[in-house]
Lab assay of single mutants.
Amino acid sequence: VKVFRALYTFEPRTPDELYFEEGDIIYITDMSDTNWWKGTSKGRTGLIPSNYVAEQ
């Protein structure tokens, strides 16, 4: 598990995607895809765009 911080707010387009706000901490559990990672924030899990976060 790696810890990342959201650089921007992300509004999901599908139920599989995770909503998060700029500054949120996201725990990444799967980075197997280059563009979409699986992450958890505020008790919810979903896909996030990798270019919206920076490693802490």
Rank of each mutant, 00 (worst) to 15 (best):
T40N: 11
F10A: 11
S32N: 10
A6I: 02
E11C: 15
T40A: 08
V53N: 01
S50D: 02
P49Q: 05
M31R: 08
E17W: 07
G43F: 04
F4P: 02
E22P: 06
T9L: 07
G46R: 01
E11K: 13
N51R: 11
E17P: 00
Y19M: 08
S50K: 10
M31G: 04
F20Q: 00
E22S: 10
N51W: 15
I28W: 01
S41F: 12
F10W: 15
T40Y: 15
D33V: 05
V1S: 13
E17K: 08
V3H: 07
R13C: 13
E55T: 08
V3F: 10
T29E: 09
W36K: 03
P12Y: 05
W37E: 00
L18C: 02
P49G: 03
Y8T: 08
I28S: 00
L47Q: 05
W37A: 01
I48T: 02
I25G: 01
D24K: 00
T14D: 10
Y27M: 10
D33P: 04
G46M: 02
E22C: 12
T29R: 05
P12D: 03
I28D: 00
F4D: 01
A6T: 01
E11H: 15
I25V: 11
D16F: 13
L7N: 04
D16L: 13
W37C: 02
A54M: 13
T29G: 04
G46V: 01
N35Y: 15
I48R: 03
G23L: 03
N51S: 14
K42L: 07
T14I: 08
N51Q: 11
K42N: 14
K42V: 03
E17R: 05
Q56W: 15
E55W: 10
L18V: 05
T40E: 13
S50P: 12
R44I: 09
R44C: 07
E17C: 09
I25L: 14
Y8I: 09
E21W: 04
I25E: 08
Q56S: 14
T34Q: 14
V1F: 13
L18F: 04
K2H: 11
I26A: 00
E11I: 15
F20E: 00
F4Y: 14
T14S: 14
V1G: 13
G46I: 02
T14W: 11
W37L: 05
F20H: 00
K38M: 15
K42Y: 08
N35I: 13
D30N: 06
R5N: 05
E11D: 09
K38V: 15
F20P: 00
F4C: 10
W37I: 02
I25F: 09
G46S: 00
E55F: 12
W36A: 02
T14A: 11
Y27T: 09
D33A: 06
P15Y: 07
D16G: 11
S32Q: 10
S41N: 11
P15S: 11
F10Q: 05
R13S: 14
S50W: 06
D16V: 08
V1R: 12
E22V: 14
A6H: 01
P12F: 06
V1D: 11
V53Y: 02
F4K: 03
R5E: 08
W36V: 05
W36N: 03
T45L: 07
L47F: 12
K42M: 10
T45R: 08
R5D: 03
Y27D: 05
N51E: 11
I26N: 00
I26K: 00
T29F: 15
P12H: 03
I25M: 09
D30I: 04
L18H: 01
D30K: 03
M31Y: 07
I25H: 05
K2E: 05
P12E: 02
K42G: 14
K2M: 11
W37F: 11
T29D: 09
P12C: 06
M31H: 05
Q56A: 15
F10H: 13
D24S: 05
V53C: 03
P15V: 10
E11Y: 15
D30V: 05
I25N: 03
S41H: 11
F4M: 12
W37V: 02
I48L: 14
D16S: 10
P12N: 05
E22N: 06
A54P: 02
S32D: 08
T40G: 07
Y8N: 06
L47I: 09
D24R: 00
V3S: 07
K2D: 04
V3Q: 10
V53E: 03
D24G: 02
L7D: 02
N51F: 09
F4T: 06
F20C: 03
G23H: 05
V3W: 12
D16Q: 12
T9P: 07
L18P: 01
G46A: 02
S50R: 11
K2T: 09
S41D: 02
E21C: 08
F20Y: 02
S41W: 05
E17I: 04
I25P: 04
I26R: 00
I26Y: 01
D33N: 11
A6N: 02
R44D: 04
K38G: 06
T29K: 06
F20T: 02
R13F: 07
W36Y: 07
E17L: 08
W36R: 05
L47Y: 12
L7F: 03
T29M: 09
K38R: 14
I25D: 07
G43A: 04
D30R: 03
T9I: 04
R5F: 14
W37T: 00
I26Q: 00
T29P: 01
D16A: 13
R13H: 10
T14C: 15
E21A: 08
R13L: 10
R44W: 05
D30Y: 04
N35K: 14
Y52T: 05
E17T: 04
R5T: 13
T9A: 08
G39C: 01
L7Q: 04
W37K: 00
N51Y: 10
P12M: 07
W36F: 08
Q56M: 15
R13N: 13
E21G: 05
R5A: 06
S41G: 04
T34G: 13
T9M: 06
I48C: 04
V1K: 11
M31C: 12
E55P: 14
E22A: 15
W36G: 01
Y52N: 03
